[in-house]
């Protein structure tokens, strides 16, 4: 047996380079290299194609640190990642506690997944319509006698909370799917033994489900960070593009989009836009490394 395994490996080594090369070359030259070019642009002042890019050192980064608008957008992104993530995984855990033995679980599970296959633009357009001051949500609240709960949902005070809620509502199904697929792989007799020993659902979760899905959690958390840092379309769809989205609602990606296009009335600042892109990448990298330390799992390859 050992010899034949060695033989397979030797054979496979011969196809290693030709199988890998197309993907590796495309990725290197069309993905990594352009990303590096972006780093260079982040050190320039550049108002778009047709104008010249001037090297201006760290000015874009310094301006970012003193610009309260960008700092708010950056903080919003962090809040979205941390608070939104807390909600997403809290809901996911709660679901994991009960879903194993729930009636109609496969139906519920596949339904929860649906929002994350839908265009955020479509969801934002439809839900935003419901949240208008005289929109459906406030009407329903008034009709059932909860007039005191009606709010200006899309106003500066609440809009970001609404956006977080929407992101949580959209994303949770994805993480439920990931985690539940691992839960499914846990042998049923473990739970049976636990039940016989008198463990309730929370204990079963604490001592069986959680430890056995740690690796999936680690992957899920990393995917969440990567996705949440990029949050963009849902904000645009909620706020529309007639005005600039209110500062309270902007994420770093929205701020970058405004820098690329110049906003509603303005000049593009591609240098700043590139710098924001670099900062977003650094934020992702730091959070991913921190998460991996925190969750310490060998299963994730990041």
């Amino acid at each position: 047996m050992a010899r034949s395994v060695g033989g397979v490996r030797g054979e496979r080594d011969r196809i290693y380079v030709p199988y890998l090369l197309p993907a590796l070359l495309i990725y290197t030259f069309l993905f990594i290299a352009p990303a590096a070019v972006t780093i260079w642009y982040s050190f320039t002042k550049w108002q778009g194609l047709g104008t010249t890019a001037h090297y201006n050192g760290l000015a874009n980064y310094r301006a970012m640190l003193s610009n309260s608008v960008f700092l708010t957008a950056f903080r919003n992104t962090l809040i979205l990642v941390v608070v939104g993530g807390a909600f997403v995984f809290a809901l996911t855990f709660l679901t994991m506690v009960v879903m194993r033995e729930m009636r109609g679980r496969s139906f519920v599970r596949s339904m929860l997944f649906v929002p994350c296959i839908l265009s955020p633009i479509a969801i934002g357009t439809a839900v935003g319509f419901l949240l208008n001051p005289d929109g459906a949500l406030n009407q329903v609240l008034s009709d059932v006698g909860l007039h005191s709960l009606t709010r200006g949902w899309l106003g500066p005070d609440l809009i970001f909370k609404c956006i977080i809620a929407a992101v949580v509502w959209i994303s949770t199904g994805f993480y439920v799917a990931i985690m539940m697929s691992r839960v499914d792989a846990i042998p049923e007799d473990l739970y049976e033994t636990a039940r016989l020993a008198g463990a309730n659902r929370l204990e079963q979760f604490r001592y069986i489900t959680f430890p056995l899905t740690r690796d999936a959690l680690s992957t899920g958390a990393v995917l969440w960070v990567i996705g949440a840092v990029k949050t963009f379309e849902i904000v645009i769809a909620f706020t529309g593009t007639a005005g600039n989205p209110p500062i309270q609602a902007r994420s770093a990606a929205v701020e970058q989009y405004l820098a690329v296009t110049g906003g509603v009335s303005g000049t593009p600042e591609l240098g700043s836009a590139a710098a924001i892109g670099v900062v977003m990448f650094l934020l992702t990298a730091v959070l991913v490394v921190a998460l991996r330390r925190l969750l310490r799992s060998e299963a994730v390859e990041l």
Binding site: T38, A253, G277, L302
Partner: peptide
């Protein structure tokens, strides 16, 4: 593999200009 995984963490926005 790690090299490819890095790409997952690079926001697509970073590639808009190039």
């Amino acid at each position: 593999i790690t090299y490819f995984a890095i790409g997952m963490g690079i926001p697509a926005q970073a590639l808009v200009v190039p």
